[in-house]
Amino acid sequence: MAIASSDNAIRSNKVARTFIYLFLLLFALFYLMPLGIMLVNSLKPLSEITAGGMIAMPNEWTIEPWLSAWSTAQIGVQPTGLRPYFINSIAMAVPAVAISTVAGALNGYVLTKWHFRGATWVFGLLLFSCFIPFQIVLIPMARILGLLEIAGTTYGLILVHVVYGIGFSTLYFRNYYAAFPTELVRAAQIDGAGFFQIFWRIMLPSSGPIIAVCCIWQFTNIWNDFLFGASFASGDAAPMTVALNNLVNSSTGERPYNVHFAGAIMAAAPTLLVYIVAGRYFVRGLMAGSVKG
């Protein structure tokens, strides 16, 4: 991860170090426990959960709950499993991430290298828009999506996520490009390079890390969104989080806990995978979105 290890001047004795290790390991267990419980119980027959409690290894291993969660479980009224909703979420997240990242890159480029009067104001307004409680836009958004006739569709959700993702993507690129030497841009300008040429030939080739940070952040946020999904796309176009919530909170009769856990892991899998593969960039994104607002 980005944080470099430093030479620490703190001394400590053996007892203290043992205590520190114990404390850290205890918390590692605390953080891993829910994921572990979900995993173990998603591989058990239901009878073992209801009879034997949760915290035990399965006597009989089964992938039945996974198959059920994926393709036959009752979501709302239909026994479709989570599969179609997983696809919905991908169809929503991929274009929304791509569009908001491209827009953010261009905005960041303009705001840092083509300074104009009021640029700071524009940025300040964009910045604040990252932190608004989305309840404040739900009512008018529902109206607009209705007027555009994309209420309850994946297109509607793409629009919503692009609109409210631009703030953060602009923030990332602006802060990154602010540290990029402006002399290079000016030199290229004198050589006769145009606006897009400079962006394409000079800015983009060195933007790899921030593109990764931005895509990962946007993907995680959009995939994990629940409020917009629940407000604007319940039913067939619902994203994965909404479908999971329906699965868990609407089952009647005996609750198939093992299927719930399998479904929860499916909903967590894409962002978890991204975290495992590119955790470094995820952390950078988190920090850039907070410490340096």
């Binding site: 891993l32 994921l35 949760m54 994990n224 629940f226 919530n245 719930h260 892991i265 978890l272 955790g279």
Partner: peptide
């Protein structure tokens, strides 16, 4: 990374896990 991974999860996943735990 173990301390930080929950931040990558959806609150719905977290909620489901803790609801049954």
């Amino acid at each position: 990374p173990i301390f930080l991974y929950p931040m990558a999860l959806s609150f719905i996943v977290t909620g489901t896990a803790w609801k049954w735990i």
